[in-house]
């Protein structure tokens, strides 16, 4: 790990600044954004589905275990699964996993383009590579990742249902009663804020790691790992900050 923090933070800010300059040709950026949306979205749906169902199932089973035999009514399970996933688990775990999947992929893609002189080739043509390579990824991530998080929250609630209803902890109607109880739409707002912030973090950090990669496959591997590690740390940090600010 490179502990030259301040230097790298400055470079990161400058890269982000360059990433938001005016596109040479909107059409090309649009095309690239669509491609990225496809890559991020379609490429991640399966993993998001799998982890979400399990997160919901585990939350439900464990909460059922905790409240069994005390005074809290069993139908609270639906309520707890809904809120913990919406507020915390769906955005955070989905984005941590996406950092591993999408983030490392972006770092490797941009890093490979740096190493194979693709970035130089574009620069010579006059392309603003910081912008062309990063902006479409950011926009795509900011559009697609909140959708994935929403899907994740929904599937987690379904997962909870599958875990406790067929096993007869409680009845189908009780679970649904819990899911519909005490609904606060502000929580959904928090979920969206979190997923937007996390999406920005994992994309920009991963692009940064890739953009400044040095020569060699070891460096490329390092950039890819660093993308995930730094994204994860920053996502958890941001999670804490958002939690304190918004609750």
């Amino acid at each position: 790990m490179d502990f030259n923090l301040l230097y790298n933070f400055g470079r990161y800010l400058m890269l982000m600044n360059a990433a938001f300059s005016r596109p040479e040709k909107w059409r090309m950026y649009y095309k690239e954004t669509i491609r990225q949306m496809h890559d991020i979205g379609v490429g991640s749906v399966v993993i998001v589905v799998i982890i979400s169902v399990f997160i919901g199932a585990v939350t439900a089973v464990q909460f059922a275990y905790q409240i069994e035999g005390n005074l809290i009514p069993m139908w609270y399970i639906g309520y707890i699964v809904r809120d913990t996933t919406i507020i915390e688990l769906a955005p955070t775990i989905t984005c941590l996993v996406l950092a591993g999947k999408v983030g490392s992929n972006m770092a490797a893609e941009i890093g490979g383009m740096r190493q194979k002189e693709h970035i130089d080739a574009m620069e010579i043509m006059g392309v603003n590579t910081a912008s062309y390579l990063i902006m479409p990824k950011l926009i795509a991530a900011l559009l697609v990742i909140p959708m994935l998080v929403a899907i994740s929250a929904f599937l987690s609630v379904m997962g909870g249902y599958l875990a406790v209803v067929p096993t007869e902890y409680l009845s189908s109607s009780e679970y649904i009663q819990g899911v519909r109880a005490f609904f606060v739409s502000y929580n959904v707002f928090m979920m969206i804020v979190k997923s937007l912030v996390f999406a920005f973090i994992l994309t920009s950090v991963s692009c940064f790691q890739g953009y400044y990669v040095k020569q060699g496959s070891i460096e490329l591997g390092k950039a890819s790992t660093n993308a995930v590690v730094f994204s994860d740390i920053l996502i958890l940090l941001a999670d804490y900050v958002i939690a304190t600010l918004l609750t």
Partner: peptide, 21 residues
């Protein structure tokens, strides 16, 4: 190393400067 863009076909590679500018 030729620096052709992997995600684009031959045609898209050659078109790229025209598309962009």
């Amino acid at each position: 190393g030729s620096a052709l863009f992997d995600s684009m076909t031959v045609e898209e590679n050659i078109r790229f400067p025209m598309d962009m500018f």
